[in-house]
Design a protein around this nucleic acid. Sequence first.
DNA 1: CCTGTCTGCCC
DNA 2: ATTCTGC
DNA 3: GCAGAATGGGCAGACAGG
Length: 876
Amino acid sequence: MSEDKSRKQATLGYVPDSQLTIGRFFGGNGNAQQSPKKQTTLAFGAKRQRASSGADPESAAEPSGVKSENDDTPDANGTESSKNLKRENADEVEESDESDVQPVPKRRRKAAKSSSPTPQKTPSPKKSPPKKSPAKAKVQSPSPPPAVKSESEDVSDEAKNQDGEEEDADMVSEAEEDVKPAVKKTMEKVQATLKASGKDPYPDWKAGDPVPYAAMCTTFSLIEMTSKRLVIMAHCSLFLQQVLRLTPKDLLPTVQLMINKLAADYAGIELGIGESLIMKAIGETTGRSLGVIKTDQHEIGDLGLVAAKSRGNQPTMFKPKPLTVRGVHEGLLGIAQVQGHGSQDKKISGIKKLLSAADSATAGKGSKGIDITKDKGGPSEAKFIVRFLEGKLRLGLAEKTVLVALAQAIVSHEAALEDKPTPSPERMAEAEAVLKSVYSQLPSYEEIIPAMLEHGIFNLPDVCRLSPGIPLKPMLANPTKSITEVLDRFEGKEFTCEYKYDGERAQIHFVAPDSIRKYPAATATLQKDKKGLSAIFSRNSENLSKKYPDVLAKLDGWIKEGVDSFVLDCETVAWDTVNKKVLPFQQLMTRKRKDVKEEDIKVKVCVFAFDLLFFNGEPVVKKSLRERRQLLHECFQPVEGEFQFAQFGNTNVLDEIQTMLEDSVKASCEGLMVKMLDTDQSGYEPSKRSRNWLKVKKDYLAGVGDSLDLVVLGAYYGRGKRTSVYGAFLLAAYSPNNDTYETICNIGTGFSEAVLEEMHKALTPLIIDRPKPFYAHSSVPKDQPDVWFEPRLVWEVKTADLTLSPRYKAAADEFEGTTGGGKGVSLRFPRYIKSRDDKNPDQATTTRAVAEMYRKQEAVAKEAAGKRGVDDDFEY
DNA sequence: CCTGTCTGCCC
DNA sequence: ATTCTGC
DNA sequence: GCAGAATGGGCAGACAGG
């Protein structure tokens, strides 16, 4: 085993020898035979051996439990090289798409899969219809033709039954591109069958009348009951068709409520309602104490259900008017708009109003609320109002699906208007493509829906187009587990690597003064000054212009002669003007966000541009990345500390990518973005594939990056699909000096459902009344876990970064009196890797080691500053 | 006016 | 942000 | 591979309440 020092180095950060480590990921790179590997492999597989012969390795090399890249966990190590070798012919998953080595095993896997679920599935549909119908009966009690009800209910299942096998086969192979038509056929079938019942799940309201909110909730309930996406889509689309047929003017609020939004993101409308206020409102509406509500929430894991359950306890003096979609939307908007003194009470009374009017058909009839164990609570209006407020409808239906359903609904509706038959699958697909494309260029239903109603869906592209003033959806990237995966995915294609800067995504829009009249839409959203119109939008289309007045003021300095308008895709990064270097993300976040005056900006920012989406009156999103980048470099000029081009290199040589990844990290970046340069997939079209780019970060690579072994001290009750198990856990590092456990982070991702169950079982016996006196943890009430445990379980956890935390205590004493001011260390993006059953809690990562890791990270950042300029314009 | 809590939004 | 899961 | 739903740290801003 290598000695202590080298290990720690490797662990602690982004140090030179980590290159070696990365090398391992390519397999057979020469360092696979590094000694530490074998040792640890041994250590894991056979504890005894380690105890006797390997006592040293464990205690000396891993006194603190810190993982180094060398001291990698055995499985990763031991199988490392073989894994890589195997990759070409084994089932290494996903990365095979473009290679033709794989199809055979892949198919086989699928075939095997499809054969087993089929028999299981068959019985289930028979069971489900009777389960569903009672819920329906409740809501539809006014005028329900029961026969129709169950019929429409059954159809989806019937469809499954009749040709279950056929369909299953289709579904299973859905992923294969070449089977897409079959999927469409299936979808058609589902929808057609649903439709064939002749009735919508909710009976028609009077044409022109406002859409009843109950109608939407009925659809929601149907959607919630299935996980089949085609069925979800069909329900959604059918309901939208009904709205189109009866009350098209309510389509906009209907869609908005479906996607859990009150308005387009860039409009900046916030509800200002969170869990606390919702609980207060539910308590007041139902006459139950806050404590009871909280207990319920813990048990039920869904405030919507809590509201539904306690609904109807209060006798209503008179029957309120039934809620309408429009009414709910307006009510919520009202809640969003109140502000200032006493606004919280007003918000609560707004919620109370909605909740008291909810479920007027069923409430107040002496029923004690609904049975929430049935059908996930059924179509309760209260439930969905509350879920809207929480910002999570949890239907298995969200923006993307609604968009597609909307396209289908419109095409069908348009066809029906002209007495044409149901549109062909091809036409459906065409409509979807059109709507997706339009939406990604102009993500605003306020704009799209009226235009669509007026001009028809196929004319949308002429009416709703990308233009400065309205943010478009940004391209996103997929994480990549190794550089070989990158090579596999982009095999045979030219691609480029860019530094991934650790800042805030910024889409910068600009129109020069002389051209303002050409962009009428822009005047509404862009900030106007003597230098023209401009705005900055965030990754989620929020308007950040108020946060970056300094950037907008200087933007004319970046452009060359003749630039009239543009939309740039960039990253803003905090900038150290003295040392001329990039500062960490945490620094950037301390910037003021509102009413920022240029004079008193404390955190300066440098903009790193990496794409050009609109230029001089023309969208350039369909051009290849190579062309866009060339245009970008031709027409803009870097300004030190203000505006730079993202560092990049075009290479497909593994070693060079590896080197570049190392360099990016040394330059305080997060890693690399990898993008195709020329193919049709190199266009900037999120509608086609929103995650068309790849990102490579050190901590994605198995066995590379910082990982720690931490002790589980507490847990939080899970919600939604994690109800009845713990949803998150409180972790700590160990301080041998005073024998304390100092909290370092919560963790809630990385667990499979099985592991969550297992942990729940393992931890429940360890529950204790109160935290041990030797637990160092925040005393803020909101920071307390729901349950505390004996210190026993040790988990390996991976992290991207270490941060100084106002909440966690790990190594806090080490930072007393420093800049940190007594703050502890915490983890950025913590995720569970695996259980370390082989470790006792006092063998967990020590707080000293944590402090060391943090310092090392800082040191690397500083070192980068020194080197800057030398390899600044290094050619790759 | 100060402090703690809640919310929304960055990652 | 990261990760898991059903389709 | 997509889409959705679980979950993380941590900041500024808005309010409530003393």
